[in-house]
Amino acid sequence: MKPVCVLGNGQLGRMLRQAGEPLGIAVYPVGLDAEPEAVPYQNSVITAEIERWPETALTRELAIHNNFVNRDIFPRLADRLTQKQLLDRLHLATAPWQLLANSSQWPQVFANLGELAIVKRRVGGYDGRGQWRLRPGQENQLPADAYGECIVEQGINFSGEVSLVGARGHDGKSVFYPLTHNLHEEGILRASVALPQPNPALQQQAEQMLSAVLDELNYVGVMAMECFIVGERLLINELAPRVHNSGHWTQNGASISQFELHLRAILDLPLPTPVVNTPSVMINLIGTALNPQWLALPLVHLHWYEKEVREGRKLGHLNLNDPNAASLQHTLHALAPLLPSEYQSGLAWAQQRLN
């Protein structure tokens, strides 16, 4: 099988490499500043763990590589403006939005979108960065350089957040995991819960929405779609053209992980629907040093990224899965004393989702 080069050498590239090893697929995560001659890209299939990248000697070479899968799709989805325009053209529901070009628009923005405006940088913002929640009178909190570089959305009163992770092959066939329920705090994913039998109406709705995007773009590989639940329908929040944090539970909770599924798709290998038989929980480890006592709990799978510990940094995650939801709840309860206070709301939320 052809080797795979991953543009970006963070934790997603690392986990793609780990997923390739049992299949005999050589996966090379590469830094953006790597010298082209040091990267075996000529006869490789190219993918990426990030949506946007600066121009470097390496990225200039890859930009003309015939085997860079989805190469022209990344910049289109990395810009929230062009991403929203795509969703509008496909008549897929999102929060009402508009481009925020200058400060004189604020009266019209609040009149059209309501009293809570969510401002997001068109490119680059993630994990709560580059985003602002503004009400009338708070407009001066937005940096002057944001105008023209941001979109503004209506603040949505939603009952829950879910994501759908799916993959499309070269033959146009798509497969999906069950919907994942997510808890975000301050814009950062804290915990995810996936159940083997999701709400069938929401699952069908999500699959139809993501299928429309995948087919329109002729996309190949894994894509994630984050949504708000509003009543009986879904509103698309964002698309991620790559493996995704909310799909990490698949490493231990599905017959094929999202990382293996992505490699299968881009290499044109068989792409069966992954089998999910048990509930799963994923807890993000953010700014917290490694605690070996987590491993004393038999249902806990630790995935550590070997990064320097810094506040707000994703350093790893814990996956838990078991056929018995009560056993998962018991383990989450036992895990609580082993994690700092900021994790407690996420652990309690996950226990409640398992009811």
Rank of each mutant, 00 (worst) to 15 (best):
G166L: 06
R89K: 15
R122P: 02
G160N: 12
R121K: 13
E149M: 13
Q105Y: 14
V175L: 13
V165F: 04
A95S: 15
Q83R: 06
R135H: 03
H170T: 09
Q98Y: 09
R133F: 13
H91D: 14
L116V: 03
G114W: 12
Q108I: 01
P96G: 15
E153L: 08
P143D: 05
D79Y: 14
W106I: 05
V123T: 11
L113K: 05
F110N: 04
Q85I: 12
E115I: 01
Q108L: 13
C150M: 07
Q141R: 10
S103H: 06
G124K: 07
V162N: 03
R76M: 11
L86M: 15
W106Q: 09
H170G: 14
N140S: 15
I156L: 11
S104L: 08
N140M: 09
L100W: 02
V109F: 06
V119D: 00
Q83M: 14
L99F: 10
A144E: 04
Q154E: 09
G148I: 06
S104V: 07
T82K: 08
G155Y: 05
V162H: 00
A167C: 06
A101H: 04
A93H: 14
K173V: 13
N102P: 01
Q141E: 15
Q138L: 06
L142F: 00
N112P: 02
F158I: 01
D145P: 08
P96C: 15
L77R: 03
W132M: 05
D171Y: 06
Y126I: 08
Q138R: 04
R76Y: 01
L142T: 02
R168P: 05
A144L: 12
S174F: 09
W106L: 04
L116W: 00
S163Q: 04
R121S: 02
V162E: 00
G172P: 07
E149Q: 15
Q138C: 00
Q85A: 13
A101F: 05
G137A: 10
